[in-house]
Amino acid sequence: MKLGRGAVAGVLVALLALLAGTAVVAGPAQAATGVGTRAADGAEVVSERWSWDLRELTIEIRSPAVGRTLPVKLIMPVGWSFESSRRWPVMMMLQGGGHDDYTTWGAKTDVDALAKKWQVITVFPEAGDNATYTNYFNGGRFGKPAWEDFHTQEVLQILQKTYRANTNRAVAGLSSGGYGSMIYAARNPGMFKYASSYSGLVTIRLPIIRWAAFFASRDADPSRRFGVPFVNERNWELHDPLYMAGNLRGTGIYLSSGYTGIPAEDDTVAWSPQQFAEPIAATLSIALEKKLNALNIPVTVHYYPRGEHQWPSWQRELHRSWPLMMQAIGAGPNP
């Protein structure tokens, strides 16, 4: 393979940075950079950091929607460059809550190696500790943090403006990220061609789940997120994938979960309280599946008898759903 001057320079910079023990801060074609790129609301890329192989890029976006500077990890396809006339489809991966962040997918699964085999820009945006995937209600005033606006407006606009992304997109997430993938697709019809949920909490208004969603917030005031249950019911409805299921028409859907929580052979935890989350997630996914069937909206499901609410299960489901998502967004394997 013959390398252009920009690529050769990038490799040399990467090697020198490794020898010096510093981070790589410049990518393919050294004169080009996405720093300074702005979304419509003023969100701005303030830094870039490339990996040694010039395939992984972490950008930091100063977000008016959230009110913080947030990292976003990108994996670029073979042949990508700032100057390319080509644009690539986007695969957005959403984290779970708790201790997850934008790096956890890459740390816990082989998604990085998988993504590098395909002609797709894979995106891992930070979602915060709560991973709530909503614009906060804030007593009806809305405002910060507006996570939905960060993910579906600021990040996607910046990717299109400078990082050679097109409008063919898929989204996938685990646990609360599975909720995120479904609600983003439902609230933004046509934005995503495919949405996958792995052990996702895909409805928030069923009995018990409603109150769990309310009190699970780490905010001092749990009503900030969706409002008070039953009192601010309209806002809860508009953020419930089950209620909004009709808007999923035209989007490919994948729902998966274990239905017992019994450990599978490759599970690394013999017993965990999280095992109880799997039957709950299955119950919620089945409810959404039934609603989609009633609406004649196609959905692919996979419910498995063994597997905890843990990463080995989500690794398996990632590989099951990946070809479906790549086909939907027109992303082929590397030549």
Results as ranks from 00 to 15, higher is better:
2 K>A: 11
4 G>N: 06
5 R>M: 04
16 L>V: 09
19 L>P: 12
20 A>G: 08
22 T>C: 07
24 V>C: 14
24 V>E: 15
24 V>L: 14
31 A>N: 11
31 A>V: 09
32 A>F: 12
40 A>P: 11
41 D>G: 08
41 D>A: 09
49 R>D: 07
53 D>H: 04
54 L>W: 06
59 I>R: 06
63 S>Y: 12
63 S>I: 14
67 G>P: 11
67 G>D: 06
68 R>W: 12
71 P>Q: 07
74 L>P: 12
74 L>K: 06
79 G>S: 01
84 S>F: 02
100 D>S: 03
104 T>M: 05
120 V>A: 08
120 V>C: 07
121 I>C: 07
126 E>F: 12
134 T>A: 15
136 Y>D: 03
138 N>K: 09
141 R>G: 10
141 R>L: 02
141 R>Q: 12
146 A>K: 10
150 F>D: 12
150 F>G: 07
151 H>K: 15
151 H>Y: 15
152 T>I: 14
156 L>Q: 15
157 Q>E: 15
158 I>Q: 06
159 L>R: 13
163 Y>K: 02
164 R>S: 00
167 T>P: 02
168 N>L: 05
169 R>D: 06
173 G>Q: 03
176 S>Y: 04
185 A>G: 10
188 N>P: 03
188 N>L: 02
193 K>R: 14
193 K>Q: 15
196 S>Y: 05
196 S>A: 13
197 S>A: 13
200 G>W: 03
200 G>F: 01
200 G>K: 03
208 I>K: 15
210 R>Q: 15
213 A>P: 00
215 F>C: 09
216 A>H: 01
218 R>Q: 08
218 R>S: 08
219 D>K: 08
220 A>V: 08
221 D>W: 09
222 P>H: 08
225 R>K: 13
228 V>C: 03
228 V>N: 13
231 V>W: 02
231 V>N: 10
233 E>S: 08
235 N>K: 07
241 P>S: 10
243 Y>A: 10
244 M>D: 10
245 A>F: 05
246 G>C: 05
254 Y>I: 01
261 G>I: 11
261 G>T: 12
263 P>R: 05
264 A>P: 01
265 E>K: 11
266 D>N: 13
270 A>M: 04
272 S>E: 05
273 P>C: 10
275 Q>S: 13
275 Q>H: 13
280 I>F: 05
281 A>G: 04
284 L>H: 06
289 E>N: 04
290 K>C: 00
291 K>E: 07
291 K>Y: 00
292 L>W: 00
299 V>R: 02
300 T>L: 03
303 Y>G: 00
305 P>Q: 00
306 R>Y: 15
307 G>H: 12
310 Q>D: 08
313 S>C: 04
314 W>R: 07
315 Q>K: 12
319 H>G: 09
319 H>A: 09
325 M>Q: 15
326 M>D: 13
330 G>C: 04
